[in-house]
């Protein structure tokens, strides 16, 4: 593995046991592999239930992975204990989807942002927080005056800035962004995305950026992975994903995006995807997308397609290729 890789996961698998005697398991993540170079962004997209958030939570070790390996900056963190993980958490932070639920309602903004500093012994009392917190507030587009207010006094976009400030205060090298803009208005989403991109340019940090909005993911990412029912359907350069989408699922996702032009929208011929994502408890045999796939062949329901490289840097798991 190259020295420049910030995060690598190999065959990461996360199953949740539902019923031991019946051996019922949720196959949330089933053998995902990717690597994020330093200073780069990998975007993960897919519908709800595809396992993208579980993937993030497993990487940050909220869950103990069922199988596979996680390397952070070259170090295997797959089986580290929470105590051993603690010093590494400075390197790896997370931004959550819901800016309402992820901030403590009883704490003022200064204390929310200072909490990681206290937890890691960088400061020893709240009195010292200001010198770290004020510059960070300004960095994320808030002001010093905001420090003494409670989270409920802020709009969704501002709350997300507070969550970002909390994640960045430890100067992490990798930030996992789990749908950081999904709960925000379109007009506010761009504010948050610009902020994350600017910070990356300044500090050279890496992002794992998770969202269901393919246009935004393509915009922020260097590489994009499309997940379906716990598996990687396609993984390639961000530009390729809309120029040359190979997997029928990726094509369907692209076809589902509303076209912000009424004339083109009326002429739209591309069709989206029929049906719903199946249950991850009993994933379909063979290719998991097969029941919804317009191009399915007999082999698709028998054999699971392996992720293979079809052109340099472009991997797809589909029997058509």
């Amino acid at each position: 593995m190259s020295e420049k890789t910030m995060l690598e996961v190999r065959d990461l698998t996360m199953h949740f046991m539902l019923n031991k005697s019946k051996n019922l398991k949720v196959h949330a993540v089933d053998g995902i592999s990717f690597a994020i170079p330093r200073g780069k962004t990998l975007g993960l997209v897919g519908e709800s239930g595809c396992g993208k958030s579980t993937c993030a939570r497993t990487i940050i070790r909220i869950y103990d992975p069922t199988d596979g390996k996680i390397f952070l900056d070259g170090q295997d963190i797959t089986r580290l204990s929470q105590k051993e993980l603690k010093p590494l958490r400075k390197k790896m932070q997370m931004i959550f989807q819901d800016p309402y639920a992820s901030l403590n309602a009883r704490m003022v903004v200064r204390d929310i942002i200072a909490e990681p500093l206290l937890a890691h012994g960088i400061i020893h009392s709240k009195k010292e927080a200001g010198e770290y917190v004020y510059p960070m507030l300004e960095r994320v587009g808030l002001t010093r005056e905001h420090a003494d207010r409670y989270a409920h006094e802020f709009s969704g976009g501002q709350r997300q800035r507070i969550g970002i400030a909390r994640a960045l205060i430890l100067q992490p090298e990798l930030v996992i962004c789990d749908e950081p803009i999904s709960a925000l208005d379109v007009s506010i989403q761009a504010q948050v995305v610009n902020l994350l991109k600017d910070y990356q340019e300044e500090k050279g940090i890496s992002y794992l950026f998770i969202a269901h909005d393919l246009s935004m993911v393509r915009y922020v990412s260097d590489q994009v992975g499309v997940m379906y029912l716990g598996q990687m359907a396609e993984l390639c350069e961000a530009e390729e994903i809309y120029r040359k989408p190979l997997h029928p699922y990726t094509q369907g996702l692209l076809g589902s995006i509303p076209i912000p032009n009424p004339k083109l929208a009326r002429e739209k011929v591309t069709s989206g995807i029929q049906g719903d994502i199946p249950s991850p408890v009993n994933p379909p045999e063979g290719c998991r997308f097969c029941p919804r796939c317009p191009y399915a062949k007999p082999v698709c329901s028998r054999e699971t397609p392996r992720l293979k490289e079809v052109s340099p840097g472009h991997q797809v798991a589909c029997h058509l290729y």
Binding site: S155, V186, S187, A190, Q191, N194, Y219, Y242, P260
Partner: peptide, 25 residues
């Protein structure tokens, strides 16, 4: 104009910054 500019476009030039509507309601 601001709302129209803020819609993420799948063909958006990656080196061009997005144009949000700054501020809050």
């Amino acid at each position: 104009l601001g709302l129209l500019a803020a819609i993420p476009d799948i063909k958006q030039d990656k080196n061009k910054r997005l144009t949000p509507i700054e501020g809050t309601p």
